[in-house]
């Protein structure tokens, strides 16, 4: 630290960080000012809740010496936040939470940014998607809904978050797999879609478990199937005698569509390996806490913690997968 102080005096405008100072590299890096966590979605959404939960866990267990600040930058489907992180290359006090928007937003909007501009840290979990209908609706299985959709005029309405993003891709995949036709209605968030479903304004939605659980438990909506490759690993009762694990996968029920979405943490590019390792270690500790496990179970997140090479491999594969999906749907931005 002494070296740091000297460096400050010598070069007032330089941040005292390992990247700048070869001398302090022997020491493990520690943050020297508050850490900003950028959430590319608005307050109250699933990404925001995850960031605030992590913030709470870190502060409660005193995992860092510096406070954590959550900053929401929801504009342009997260594009603004991504450009901000790209511009902050080298800033080791800034993190960003990510979902698959990290692939899709640049692909659909021509923004000059990619996840390779960032430093991947960890994947905390994957988020599942369900096919939900109103509790009063006659549909018992996915095939009932699909059969009804084939005859419906005007087409049955399916709600989801935003446009040209994961929810709409799911609906298109369902159309491809079944031959039925839906009207996809974009809402600003999963909460709004869930409420619209409870009020019978749409026939179904494709929400994440965390977005739909309130209405499921309240008896307003219910799941037909889950779009994960295998059932969710939670057997605690959620509603009546049903647990998350009791919901069949869509594949089991003859609707061959499967999709999960990463929930990860990145930091800006051009940071030192020590800085990266510090945060990887931090999130490893977060993931091991009971609070985090509770949070995962409550929101039915799919446990899939990855770091280092494993995360990188995953990202490369997932990016190609999304490019495929967007190409098929015709959503790639024309260059």
């Amino acid at each position: 630290m002494k070296a740091c102080v000297q460096a400050r005096i010598l070069a007032a405008s330089l941040l005292c960080s390992g990247a700048v100072l070869g001398a302090s590299q022997a020491l493990a890096w520690e943050p020297t000012k508050p850490i900003e966590v950028v959430v590319p979605f608005s307050a109250g959404g699933a990404s925001d809740q995850m960031a605030r939960t992590i913030q709470g866990i870190i502060q409660k267990n005193k995992l860092t010496t510096q406070p954590i600040i959550v900053v929401n930058k929801p504009a342009a489907a997260g594009g603004e936040a991504m450009l901000d992180i790209k511009d902050s290359a080298g800033d080791a006090h800034k993190l960003i939470t990510t979902s698959s928007g990290i692939f899709m937003t640049p692909m659909t909007t021509k923004l000059g940014v990619s996840w390779t501009d960032f430093t991947p840290l960890v994947m905390m979990a994957q988020d599942a998607f369900g096919l939900w209908v109103n509790a009063k609706s006659p549909y018992k299985e996915p095939k009932d809904l699909l059969a009804a959709a084939k005859d419906a005029k005007p087409a049955l309405k399916v709600g989801g978050t935003g446009s040209k993003r994961e929810d709409q891709l799911l609906v298109i995949a369902m159309e491809k797999a079944s031959g039925a036709k839906f009207s996809y209605i974009p809402y600003p968030g999963g909460g709004a879609a869930s409420t619209q479903l409870a009020g019978e304004h749409i026939a179904a939605d494709t929400n994440n478990p965390s977005e739909e659980i309130a209405n499921w438990r309240g008896g307003a909506t219910r799941p037909l199937c889950i779009f994960s490759p295998k059932r969710l690993p939670y057997d605690a009762k959620v509603v009546g005698d049903q647990s998350w694990g009791d919901i069949p996968t869509c594949r089991e029920k003859g609707l061959d569509v499967s999709y999960e979405m990463l929930r990860g943490m990145f930091m800006p590019g051009k940071v030192s390996p020590e800085q990266r390792d510090y945060y990887v270690g931090l999130f490893r500790k977060v993931a091991a806490t009971d609070e985090w496990k509770d949070y995962m179970a409550r929101n039915a997140l799919v446990p899939d913690f990855r770091e280092g090479e494993a995360f990188l491999e995953f990202l490369k594969k997932d990016e190609l997968h999304h490019k495929d999906l967007l190409t098929q749907a015709g959503f790639l931005a024309a260059n």
Binding site: S42, G44, D48, G56, I213, R217, G218, D294
Partner: peptide
């Protein structure tokens, strides 16, 4: 919305129940 996030962190699930 932020309050809502708080409710969930305290383990309370907002909703009809």
């Amino acid at each position: 919305a932020v309050l809502l996030g708080g409710l969930m962190i305290w383990g309370l699930q907002p909703g009809p129940l």
